[in-house]
Design a protein around this nucleic acid. Structure first.
Length: 434
RNA sequence: GGAGAGAUGGCCGAGUGGUCGAAGGCGCACGCCUGGAAAGUGUGUAGGCGGGCAACCGUCUCGAGGGUUCGAAUCCCUCUCUCUCCGCCA
């Protein structure tokens, strides 16, 4: 969410940034709405001031038993009442209107983000001294590779038809060695981030209030992507990603600069209705209503969020390096970025069965966009509260990592070798389904 | 599910209609004291919003929302959350 003061001070910059996102200019209407609001607030304050002074004088008059003076003042204050109620109501309405308008505007991209309309304009990302060769190579398969669901169904470890009987489409039942492999991948990634990358492990609630979903931008615009369960007279939302509870850990608080950065990680189920993706990726477990994911969240100062973004990308990449899975990193273009992001890197894993790259992680820096929605601040060197910066990234999606391991480590006979990094989590075995 | 208690500043805790954003203590910051430190001592120490170049002024906030009143932390209503006991339960 944007600061209306910043928009007022930089209307051209704001509209230009919106244009990069393919949005029409909004500064003029927002500024005039804010001016209306401020005029009301100013008048409201002065009427309140009048009421407060008179009320104090009434108290003094009564203390001095000057009943006629008191009655006179009371009549005066009574005359302010209607106006006061009127101003109060319109102040609330205008503030609400402004907040609604602001909360529907997507974050603006950092200057270095490439401009573009969709995923075709995303750009490969390499650091200096980095190339395809410095990343794990594609597997050398001397046979026609199968897709993960063929491999999984063949060994009785993936049951889509059974899941459909229980829950409909976009669910899967994992069994036996595949279920264990999925668990091993999650544990491996969580341990990596906790033990080597300095993240604090968290087990958050999987059901959250609307306020939390507003904080991380799922509401109000993306309600149809979520599942809700009734709760009393209200409801709770099933988290579509652990980004929601982890980021909201700092909501409505003022942190000290010394405790930043905060780094949280969690392995949780995620629930998505996939309302907008009917017909896409219907085969297999690439796109499910429920899947496990290891999430990374960082809370930083404004000065350090850029470096933290690079660091977080490194943490997510390390998963694929240890698993020995070929991947590429893409800088998302302005048209393909999520609503709350200033800049996003996607990590795409190579899937031999599909003969293509598929997104396995998305790492975003949000600036103070979410912090404003959550009212999450820290005290800077001058002791003044400032909004924190928030970052989130998958580290990585467990279901998709399972797909990647299966397809990249498949053998001609349909068995799957276990990457060495996962063997300790699999009781030391080196192959399943053989 | 039944019965009861409670929610005040970073923390503890006073405050049952007027000058209370709020005593006192702790913590923290700065100063004095000291060779240095401790102890002692003095001062300061919430956030939002509006106005102002600023100093500053005003306003709102004592869980949230509404009401009574000239005036509410204090009275009334609704909600949320926390705690205790009983029941049930992984």
């Amino acid at each position: 969410m944007f600061d209306i003061k910043w928009i007022s001070a930089n209307p051209e910059a704001f509209d230009a940034a919106l244009a990069k996102r393919g949005q029409s200019p909004l500064s003029a209407s927002l500024i005039s709405l804010d001016e209306k609001r401020r005029a009301i607030v100013t008048e409201l304050n002065s009427v309140q001031e009048k009421r407060n002074t008179s009320s104090k004088q009434i108290g003094q008059a009564k203390a001095q038993k000057d009943e006629s003076r008191a009655a006179e003042l009371m009549a005066e204050v009574a005359g302010l009442k209607d106006r006061l109620a009127e101003l109060d109501a319109s102040e609330k309405a205008l503030t609400e209107e402004l907040r609604n308008a602001l909360s529907g505007i997507p974050n603006i991209p950092l200057v270095e983000v490439p401009e573009g309309v969709d995923e075709h304009d995303n750009q490969p990302y390499f650091r200096p001294n980095e190339s395809e060769a410095t990343r794990p190579a594609k597997p050398n398969l001397h046979f026609a590779p199968k897709e993960h669901y063929e491999l999984g169904e063949r060994m009785g470890g993936m049951d889509f038809e059974g899941a459909a009987k229980l829950s409909g489409s976009r669910f899967v039942i994992l069994k036996g060695q595949i279920a264990r492999l999925e668990r091993a991948i999650g544990q491996f990634m969580l341990d990596l981030h906790v033990n080597e990358h300095g993240y604090t492990e968290v087990q958050p609630p999987l059901m959250v209030r609307d306020e939390a979903l507003f904080g991380t931008n799922q509401l109000p615009k993306f309600e149809e992507d979520l599942f809700f369960v009734p709760h009393g007279d209200s409801r709770l939302g099933l988290i579509p990603t652990a980004e929601v509870p982890l980021t909201n850990l700092v909501r409505e608080s003022i942190l000290s600069e010394g405790e930043l950065p905060l780094r949280f990680t969690a392995l949780t189920p995620c629930f998505r209705s996939e309302a907008g993706s009917a017909g896409r990726d219907t085969r297999g477990m690439l796109r499910q209503h429920q899947f496990n994911k290891v999430e990374l969240v960082s809370i930083t100062t404004p000065e350090t969020s850029g470096d933290e973004h690079e660091r977080m990308l490194t943490c997510a990449e390390e998963v694929l390096k240890r698993l020995g899975i070929h991947y590429r990193v893409m800088t998302l273009c302005t048209g393909d970025m999520g609503f709350g992001a200033q800049k996003t890197y996607d990590i795409e894993a190579w899937l031999p069965g599909q003969n293509t790259y598929r997104e396995i992680s998305s790492v975003s820096v949000c600036g103070d966009f979410q912090a404003r929605r959550m009212d999450a601040r820290y005290r800077d060197a001058d002791g003044k509260p400032q909004f924190v910066h928030t970052l989130n990234g998958s580290g990585v999606a467990v279901g998709r990592a399972l797909i990647a391991v299966m397809e990249n480590y498949q053998n001609a006979d349909g068995s799957i070798s276990i990457p060495s990094a996962l063997q300790p989590y699999m009781g030391g075995i080196t192959k399943i389904g053989g």
